[in-house]
């Protein structure tokens, strides 16, 4: 069992919720990203979602789009993403999930990508635009390399689709907390309770909620419904707005501390 699966299993048993912040690899540079992941780790993150940037991220709102283009312009690559992941896992001793879109993965070769992810110490991979209908070869390649595959469940998911997601045995189900692309929301989603009870009535696969969880209040509202939460845009925006890496580190660490306190409280 990987570190991530074990941590999710413990969270399920104890009724606690993992805090898994997202950051775009290479924002604002590879070294700076590492420093930011370390700062979030010290502030109480339980693991990380590391995003390999892509030119046309269909699931992402303006903040993560901009972060991706800045990271690409600063020279981030697939190789760079694997190297950064390895440094993050080694330095923080916490699990990491690698997220990207399907085209860079196919360009490198599916098996090669999964092998490289495994060698980097990544526990699971997320391919945002690979739905369960197309997932079989991806699932097989990930299994052969010894990494997990994450699949999504949205508030609009049909029962038949949810059953197919569960049957594919993902490392966890990424529950989309709110309709729409990644981005901050001013209110807590009204969808999470219903989505969570649907997933939990059918399966004991861990459920991690993300999309639209932007601060302590929404995190506290989502936490009872999930084994983990992902906070992305709120982290990335603080990094984009910071004057320098130190400031970005302080701002993201403060956010993680606040969310940690909110979900543990």
């Amino acid at each position: 069992m990987t570190g991530l699966a074990a941590a999710l299993g413990r969270a399920q048993k104890t009724g606690s919720t993992l805090l898994l912040p997202y950051l775009t690899a290479g924002l604002p540079s590879a070294d700076a990203s590492l420093a930011l992941f370390e700062a979030m780790s010290a502030a109480g993150a339980d693991g990380f979602e590391i995003g390999i940037p892509y030119t046309d991220p269909l699931m992402d709102g303006p903040v993560i789009q901009r972060a991706g283009l800045e990271a690409l312009n600063a020279g981030m690559t697939l190789d760079g993403g694997f190297a950064l992941s390895k440094r993050v896992v080694t330095s923080t001793a916490k699990p990491a999930i690698l997220m990207t879109y399907v085209n860079p993965v196919l360009r490198m070769g599916l098996s090669a990508f999964c092998d490289r992810a495994a060698a980097a110490g990544v526990d699971a991979v997320i391919f945002v635009d690979v739905p369960v209908d197309e997932a079989e070869p991806f699932s097989e390649a990930a299994r052969a390399s010894g990494v997990g595959l994450v699949l999504f469940a949205s508030p609009t998911i049909t029962d038949a689709r949810l059953e197919a997601v569960i049957a594919a045995e993902p490392t966890f189900i990424y529950g989309i907390a709110d309709l729409g692309v990644t981005g901050e929301r001013s209110t807590a989603s009204t969808h999470v309770g219903h989505l969570s009870s649907r997933v939990r009535s059918l399966s004991d696969i861990p459920l991690v909620l993300g999309v639209g969880i932007s601060g302590p209040e929404q995190a506290a509202a989502a936490a009872p419904h999930a084994d983990g939460i992902i906070v992305g845009t709120a982290v990335v925006r603080r990094v984009l707005e910071a004057a320098n890496v130190d400031e970005a580190g302080r701002a993201t660490a403060q956010l993680i501390e606040e969310i940690r306190a909110a979900i543990d409280g």
């Binding site: 269909l58 739905p131 999504f152 689709r161 309709l179």
Partner: peptide, 12 residues
């Protein structure tokens, strides 16, 4: 059909 899950029910 390489689309985010949110769109899949609409495509169906």
């Amino acid at each position: 059909r390489f689309a985010p899950e949110t769109l899949m029910p609409a495509l169906e």
